[in-house]
Nucleic acid binder design. Sequence first.
DNA 1: TATTGTTATACTCTATAACTATA
DNA 2: TATAGTTATAGAGTATAACAATA
Lengths: 150, 150
Amino acid sequence: MSAPGNELSKSEASIFEGLIGYHLRRLSVAVMTDLADSLAPLGLRPAEASVLFMIDANPGITQSDVAKELGILRANMTPLIAALVKRDLIQREPVDGRSQALTLSSRGDALTRKAWLITRQHENRMFGTLSESARSRVIAQLRGLWRHAR
Amino acid sequence: MSAPGNELSKSEASIFEGLIGYHLRRLSVAVMTDLADSLAPLGLRPAEASVLFMIDANPGITQSDVAKELGILRANMTPLIAALVKRDLIQREPVDGRSQALTLSSRGDALTRKAWLITRQHENRMFGTLSESARSRVIAQLRGLWRHAR
DNA sequence: TATTGTTATACTCTATAACTATA
DNA sequence: TATAGTTATAGAGTATAACAATA
């Protein structure tokens, strides 16, 4: 958008300029695209990486608890988890007759460390112009708006 | 997330707490969901409403210019525009042998006014806790980060 | 040659309903 | 009765390639 010589830029701005939701969505899409591109060399999508981070921080967590934490529907967790098991990134062990405890395999642990490094580099690339205190303020602002919005 | 008595909340926070992208995405999803729910009674999705707003502000704009402004691929504009024409919300008139000028029909104009009102009410509901100056600062912040990110 | 619009296609994300087996 | 996980399915959003008609 807003390409030089594009005569629509002015009116486009006047329509959506005052809408926070518009700018929020536009930034979120750009950031997610960059994260997806950054993780792609590892063969991971953002949702898969977030599942690995969750299991890494909570060894033995069950599939449905990962789903609850990440806001993913249980029905959609099944193929996601199955793909990670098939790639030998995570292991499943029965807790009882229903639940499965999830842990990272050694390959999964190594890949998760790489994914976490890439995610931090991505954050610095996207938000590195902000000071540490500015980042904290932004996060506090976004958290507050989210708590009110949901 | 963060339901009372959920013992995973602490570790969930510790993983993603420092990531602006995480909070950005979470807020964007919540806001978009509210907007979609708000527009649904009109039979409009956010993308369709944004197309109507664009045509309203730029009568005679072509399909591909709407696509460029909104970041929608031309291939995906075809069914979107076709549906709005079929509902008699917009009209197409040939500019030359290739391009089609888009304008709102009287029904489309009436619906667009309702959609705009709903969008403003949605914004006030989501961000009404912010003062006018705080909203301007948030927009400036998001714009700056977007220009750097894309 | 480049642009407008179309068609076909495919992948991802999200969502609901119905089913099993277990608690 | 409620929960964990699965299966099937469907609707959106997004993406690429190839094509016809026109500039």
